[in-house]
Design a protein around this nucleic acid. Structure first.
Lengths: 365, 365
DNA sequence: ATGAAAGCGCTAACAT
DNA sequence: ATGTTAGCGCTTTCAT
């Protein structure tokens, strides 16, 4: 079918070398070549033979054909990586961790944007049933989580869930969300804030309660009260962040600072603040969980808590490889390296206190 | 190797159905099943038989094993997509076009960030020599372009170059760069600017002269002069954009507006302007080629010219598929849809003219 | 210490 | 109108 793979004639593109070519060049049988190149421990060959085979393979630039090998081994050394938006800067670092771990194990990551699964709902099932992947790394998004995850469970694909813990089966890698939120909260406390709000995620998302509890414990251990009206649980999207701002800014006595549980909500929250001419950080300080490149470009640049994204990706692959080699699936929390505060411009000391709401420029009620 | 694929015992995960299972269920031979499911035109079967086979395949949720099929067909229906940074928002839309075209042809795109190739230089060669991809879509970056492209040429992999034209061999899909730059330039002229500069790319990059010529012809057809000192050819990175600002802002009589030949340079240029307290757009208007999500987040939001990224990706796959089926490689210019001006905040009418340099706040020299 | 050969799942040429 | 079979390139068991 493919036009370039003709039998070698004079001038035409050469056929790719295969086992038998190496075997002929080294004057051994193909089985010896296979064993040498795969480092078969049961191999009992003369050093000289091994060297001859290796030299022949190198000079021919031999690489085992993936289809032949896969057919025989019943595995393809490819893992599918399903991400909400592979183009988001947020995932750049996680993907780098995934790639690094894959490189070490001679695995190929095949990235599938979750959005594609919506349009082409059997895409994942196809990949699995056609045997194009040995296993899956999945970061579920709410909308498609249920049906996709059910398909995955039904197909018995070795799977590790990223960032959130699976309700379906063991096998996940998550951040220490509470620790990250605590770092953010303590930074605001250290700056002198006492009136601190929390913009959280939707309670049904399994990360949300962990993040909220990080906020609560950091506040409590500094003896600071938590005011219900300063805590929103609207979701993780920019729109949710905007809504959270609306809810918090309308209050008679608003907080002087907020911890925001995720990056996208922080973008929306800050945008809404700017549109309402609320000065960040002078009127309102913001620290958000999860750093990302766009945090730098936003005005004001966002102070964030950077979580170990690289390591999460790395460990996810590591654990998936364990599962593929027969070990039981586990739920892993990535605690190292610890969350790191990235100070930029969105958090500062509170203004000298005034009991008027500086956030509400329109003085109604 | 993979732990989940055991022979079906009681309770254990079921073996994936294969041709012979469908054949047994439909009481026909495996060749009939293969021909029915592949829509073989030479098939001369009874309608009833066809229906029986299709029903059996559907009820078993049969999917042909990729390894078996690939081994036989000598093609894998996977194309490698090498992008400078797959995580950049810039490529999101191009990738969507690639995916859309792949979905239509039952191809799988396998995205490889070019950065990985630096660390793991034989990665691409490996993919090709192992037969894991049938062809390649490559956007070369300067640093690795030469060695990688040479490897590709040597391996005779069907390849289509993205965005820039290949000096190595035919097979490319590029934008109508001149048209895009002309749209940007004409917008500034329509706003009343006469003193317009151009921040271009490095001359060795093949897109650079096309973009410069678009600027020149738009200026000339409005009877506007081009001043050499307002034209920079430093490169496409944010740092290059910063350098371009430095060069332009230092002049006695600077332009009131600039066209910037690419998105990243515009980000750097605008950042440098902000740091120099130059008001954009009041002191200096900016229009850049290539829209991207971050153009909205930057302050001021950038006025840009959106190029047909989706279509470029789509056509690249289309053409690669043509090459794979034996047609000769061509160099394609994507002219539809035309470049579209996205008006945001970085371009406005020029200030009433003053012959002092408003860009140079420090009055030295 | 090395080789022969079976067989992974599929397509297609060749029977019938 | 349908079935039989060779063979794609590889790994691995079994033989020597």
């Amino acid at each position: 079918m493919s036009g370039y793979r003709k039998v070698s004639g004079s001038g035409g593109p050469a056929r790719r070398p295969q086992l038998k070519d190496v075997a002929r060049a080294a004057s051994v049988s193909i089985s010896v070549v296979s064993r040498v190149l795969n480092g078969d421990p049961s191999l009992r060959a003369r050093r000289e033979t091994i060297e001859r085979v290796e030299a022949a393979a190198a000079s021919l630039q031999y690489r085992a054909n993936a289809a032949g090998r896969s057919l025989r081994k019943q595995s393809v050394d490819v893992i599918g990586v399903v991400l909400p938006d592979a183009n988001s800067l947020f995932y750049a670092e996680m993907l780098r961790g995934i790639e690094a771990a894959c490189d070490e194990r001679e695995l190929m990551p095949m990235v599938i944007r979750a959005e594609r699964i919506g349009a082409n709902s059997n895409l994942l099932t196809r990949l699995v049933r056609e045997g194009r992947v040995d296993g899956l790394l999945v970061q579920p998004i709410d909308r498609i989580a249920a049906e996709v995850m059910e398909g995955i469970v039904r197909d018995h694909v070795p799977t590790v869930i990223l960032v959130s813990k699976s309700q379906w089966q063991p096998g996940s890698v998550v951040f220490d969300d509470a620790a990250g939120i605590a770092v953010a909260t303590r930074h605001l406390i250290a700056l002198g804030h006492r009136d601190i709000g929390f913009v959280g995620g939707f309670p049904s998302h399994d990360t949300a309660p962990r993040r909220l509890s990080g906020f609560e414990s950091a506040m409590e251990s500094s003896g600071l009260p938590i005011r219900k009206e300063w805590v929103t649980e609207l979701g993780y999207s920019p729109e949710d962040g905007r809504a959270a701002f609306a809810q918090i800014a309308e209050q008679e006595h608003p907080p002087t600072a907020v911890v925001i549980a995720t990056h996208n909500a922080a973008i929306g929250f800050a945008q809404a603040a700017r549109q309402a001419s609320v000065d960040v950080p002078d009127d309102l300080s913001i620290v958000s969980l999860h750093d990302s490149l766009s945090a730098e470009y936003v005005t004001p640049a966002l102070t964030t808590v950077k979580m170990p994204l690289f390591e999460l990706g790395y460990q996810a692959v590591t654990h998936l490889a364990e599962i593929l080699s027969g070990e039981p699936a586990r739920d892993i929390v990535v605690t190292e390296p610890r969350p790191i505060l990235i100070e930029r411009e969105s958090a500062g000391p509170p203004r000298t206190q005034s009991h008027l709401n500086p956030l509400r420029k329109t003085g109604n009620k």
